[in-house]
Amino acid sequence: MESELKIRLETVNFFYGKQQALKDISFEVYKNKVTAVIGPSGCGKSTLIRLFNRMNELIPNTRLEGKIRLDRQNIYEPQVDVVELRRRVGMVFQKPNPFPKSIFENVSYGLAVNGIKDRDYLAEKVERSLKDAALWKEVSGRLYKSALALSGGQQQRLCIARALAVEPEVILFDEPCSALDPTATLKIEELIQRLKEKYTIIIVTHNMQQAARISDQTAFLMLGELIEYDLTNKIFTSPSKKITEDYITGRFG
């Protein structure tokens, strides 16, 4: 099957003040695929995926060089509307972070801030998103109860529902399972597998098995440099660099 290009990085450099966190990174992310980003902690994985929705802009004194194209448009051009971009590129964080509001308000939040008030439409979207996030059955009876009463795994699926509600094209996951137990992790992994039919997915993980299980493409990062990028199969069976092999076989990191 031909893979369609969704995101393309062109010699991207990123700096926190004077410290360079990403060096000359170029690669392509394909539509309806799961792309995993792996590497030892502190190598720049979070920094990298936070570039795709311009979250790094919230941190003062940062600088980006190079281009990041989403459907060929450089998302860092001045005329790009960040709000619109963040609607197209959703994000799920490392630690589940539902708002201290009801389940319904959490899921509808993104629509509400985009000015949608129609109750019926909101209700429909909330149900749809919760179903897509495999959470509907567990919470349909308590939509108006606090989201904080949910378990960690449920909270993370709620955060996924919240991201889905605004109908993004790409979803970024930054180690979404690192705070979850194995059962909850498995649920999220199955979910991601299903979500890729509709969305393009980029997931950061430091769990090698997870990358191997769920991703189509894998990028291996070290000290801010892209060491190797290829089909996941290839990376895990016959990596072209020694250092990649050392890493995935657990010889360091």
């Binding site: 960040v82 709000v83 963040r86 959703g90 964080f93 972070n97 201290p100 801030v113």
Partner: peptide, 27 residues
């Protein structure tokens, strides 16, 4: 108010003002 609430709000396309009024202040 955890930084993660603000990030979550920005990540679905809320602006600074909306984040302040709808997330930070209520929290």
């Amino acid at each position: 108010v955890p930084k993660s609430f603000r990030e979550a709000s920005f990540a679905v396309g809320a602006n600074r003002w909306q984040t302040l009024v709808k997330v930070t202040l209520p929290a």
